[in-house]
Design a protein around this nucleic acid. Sequence first.
DNA 1: TCAGTAGTTCAATGACCACTGAACTAGTGG
DNA 2: CCACTAGTTCAGTGGTCATTGAACTACTGA
Lengths: 117, 117
Amino acid sequence: MLEPHHPDLGQVSLAEVLRGLSDPARLHMVKTMYALGECECSLVYADLGLSKSNASHHFRVLRESGILRRTQRGNQQYATLRADELKARFPGLLEAVIANSGAGSGVRADPGPSGER
Amino acid sequence: MLEPHHPDLGQVSLAEVLRGLSDPARLHMVKTMYALGECECSLVYADLGLSKSNASHHFRVLRESGILRRTQRGNQQYATLRADELKARFPGLLEAVIANSGAGSGVRADPGPSGER
DNA sequence: TCAGTAGTTCAATGACCACTGAACTAGTGG
DNA sequence: CCACTAGTTCAGTGGTCATTGAACTACTGA
């Protein structure tokens, strides 16, 4: 398998990183990786109920946003947050996201009235 | 004109806020508002080259993500970052975004010769 | 009343996104 | 060689997004 491309973080804009983080499933994945360090992909999305192909999609988005790095060992893919690089490029951002990704931050409590338009 | 709806920040998820911030134009708007405090909408998007309707769209996204508050005085709409509320709800996040929204964060930079990695 | 200003709403367009299931690739171990 | 496991790629679907231009609302000042 071809080594997937990992962008130079210097080339990644803040907006792109935020876009990568702006999905509840991906936030959950990031949080898990932050807690576990390098880990098998299956571990990251096991409790998320994502299908294989959907998980693969989200991993790709995160990789292309510069948020994680993937490596292969044997039969399995491993994923690692590019935590140090992110902290160097966007100081305080990852810390804030991790600190605020707890309960109540990824899921809304109430659908909201959506009373307009 | 009907008062627009401003969501309770307690109901807004981190993913939604990140989504609101994940566009270069909106990041720019947020940065401008952070620097200027309450200000006329026209000031916020004047140097962005956004059309009126497009700017109105982005203001609505930011409002619905809980990022800003809009008020009307006379003929003009004013926009204010909900900075204190955001800092209370997602500590460190707004600070990190503002601090990293400078040059090179919203727009891809030139590759740069001192290539690393 | 009338023109001008400020901004919203609407319909439409093209792009992209999340998600699915099926087909595919690649490594592991019998 | 064969099945098994782990994950990717592909085509397609429905939904949302950014953007535009035109029509509309609402306030202001002459």
